[in-house]
């Protein structure tokens, strides 16, 4: 994967999760019990995402284009 695409994968995830925590804290408050639960949820999601990114094998071209045909991307 090109460095630009990899950076996009990381940044888009972390900016979205940070945005969600910020939006949630506007509703549940900061440093409240619910806030810590929201934060814990975001941390679990982040750990799962990091593991998924690091453990996802790069497909070969045939596999990638087969997926695009199967799901009607193009």
């Amino acid at each position: 994967m090109s460095p630009a695409l990899r950076r996009f994968a990381w940044w888009s995830f972390f900016v979205t999760e940070a945005g969600l925590v910020a939006a949630a804290s506007a509703y549940v408050g900061v440093a409240t019990r619910d806030f810590w639960l929201v934060l814990a949820s975001a941390v679990v999601a982040a750990i799962a995402y990091v593991v998924a990114v690091l453990r996802t094998p790069a497909p070969d071209l045939g596999e990638a284009t087969a997926a695009s045909r199967r799901w009607f991307w193009f």
Binding site: T16, E17, L20, D34, S41, A52
Partner: peptide, 13 residues
């Protein structure tokens, strides 16, 4: 709000 970061995480994965 507690669950939504998890669901969005699953979407991103």
């Amino acid at each position: 709000w507690i669950l939504i970061p998890l669901f969005i995480g699953v979407l991103f994965i």
